[in-house]
C-alpha cells in the first residue's frame, strides 16, 4: 500500500518539477523577490520589515498558484481526459491510494518550492546585511502548513466541482474566508443568543471553514521579537495538530468521494 502511494507521489513530483509551468513559477517568484529587494530601498527606516512582509506574501502567492493549478490537473483534468489515470486504475491500485499519492507528491513539491524560496530569501538577507531571526523559520513552517490545508481543500473542491471556474472560485473564496474565521467567531459571540441566523447558519460555518488565525506568527513578529508577546513551541505543535486533523479529514473525504465517482467516458 505505502509502496504504491510512494510511486504515485514520486511520479507527481517528477512530472511537476519537469513541467515548464513550475519552472516559470520559480522564475516568477525569483523576479518578484528581486523586486522586493529593490523596493526595500524606498522603504527607508523599515527596510527589513518591508522585505520580510513582501517576501513572505510572495511565497504564499507562489504556493497558492502552484497548488491550485497542480491540484486541479491531477485530480480532475487527468480524470476528464481519461488519460494515464485509467491505465493506473485498472492496476492493483486503489483510488484512495492514487489520491493520497498525488497529495503526498504535491505536498513535497510545495516543500521543495518553499525551500527554494527560503534559500533565495536567505541569500538576500545575507546580501543586504539584514539580521536573521528564528521567526523566519517559524513563519515559513506555518506558511507551509497553511498551504497544506489549502491543498487539501483544493483536492476536495476539484473532486466535487464540475468546472475549473467553479473550482477556482470556491477554493479562493474559502481561502479568503479562512482569514476571517476567528473574527466571525468573535462577532457571533457578541450577538444576542436568540439571533437564530447567527446560531443556525454562521456558527456551524465557522467550525467548517479553516481557521488561518492559527498561522499568525508573522503578524505578531514585532511583538514576539520585542518580548511583548509570548511564543511557545506548544502553540506551534497545536498548529501542526490542527493541520494534520483538518487536512487529513479533507483528504479522507475527498478519497471517499473520488472512490465512488465513475470516470466518465471521454
Amino acid at each position: 500500500m505505502f509502496n504504491r502511494i510512494l510511486v504515485i507521489a514520486q511520479l507527481t513530483l517528477l512530472e511537476q518539477v519537469r513541467d515548464k509551468i513550475v519552472n516559470l513559477i520559480f522564475l516568477f517568484a525569483g523576479v518578484v523577490v528581486y523586486f522586493g529587494v529593490v523596493l526595500t530601498q524606498l522603504a527607508q527606516g523599515f527596510e527589513e520589515r518591508f522585505f520580510r512582509d513582501t517576501a513572505l506574501a510572495m511565497v504564499e502567492l507562489f504556493g497558492l498558484v502552484l497548488l491550485l493549478g497542480s491540484a486541479y490537473r491531477v485530480v480532475r483534468q487527468d480524470v476528464r481526459k481519461g488519460s494515464s489515470v485509467e491505465m493506473f486504475f485498472v492496476r492493483p491500485l486503489r483510488r484512495w491510494e492514487y489520491l493520497a499519492g498525488r497529495f503526498a507528491g504535491l505536498s513535497t513539491l510545495l516543500l521543495v518550492g518553499m525551500a527554494v524560496m527560503g534559500g533565495v530569501q536567505l541569500g538576500i538577507i545575507t546580501f543586504k546585511g539584514f539580521s536573521w531571526h528564528w521567526l523566519f523559520a517559524v513563519s515559513f513552517a506555518e506558511l507551509y502548513l497553511k498551504l497544506i490545508i489549502v491543498l487539501a481543500l483544493a483536492f476536495l473542491l476539484a473532486t466535487i466541482t464540475t468546472s475549473q471556474a467553479s473550482y477556482l472560485a470556491s477554493t479562493l473564496l474559502i481561502y479568503a474566508s479562512g482569514h476571517v474565521t476567528q473574527l466571525m467567531k468573535l462577532l457571533i459571540a457578541r450577538q444576542d443568543s436568540t439571533d437564530t441566523v447567527s446560531l443556525i447558519l454562521l456558527k456551524p460555518l465557522t467550525y467548517l471553514l479553516p481557521d488561518f488565525s492559527f498561522f499568525g506568527t508573522a503578524n505578531r513578529w514585532e511583538g514576539i521579537a520585542a518580548g511583548a508577546v509570548s511564543f511557545s513551541i506548544g502553540g506551534l505543535g497545536l498548529t501542526l495538530l490542527y493541520t494534520v486533523i483538518y487536512a487529513g479529514a479533507l483528504v479522507v473525504f475527498s478519497s471517499y468521494l473520488f472512490s465512488r465517482a465513475e470516470i466518465s467516458p471521454t
Partner: peptide, 25 residues
C-alpha cells in the same frame, strides 16, 4: 488495458513511464 484516448506526461521518457507502471504492480 489501452484506453481510446491515451496520453502520458510529456516530460517523462518511455523508460521512466514503464518503470512507474511496473512499480505499481
Amino acid at each position: 488495458y489501452l484506453p481510446e484516448t491515451v496520453s502520458f506526461p510529456g516530460t517523462l521518457t518511455p523508460r521512466e513511464i514503464l518503470r512507474f507502471f511496473a512499480r505499481i504492480d
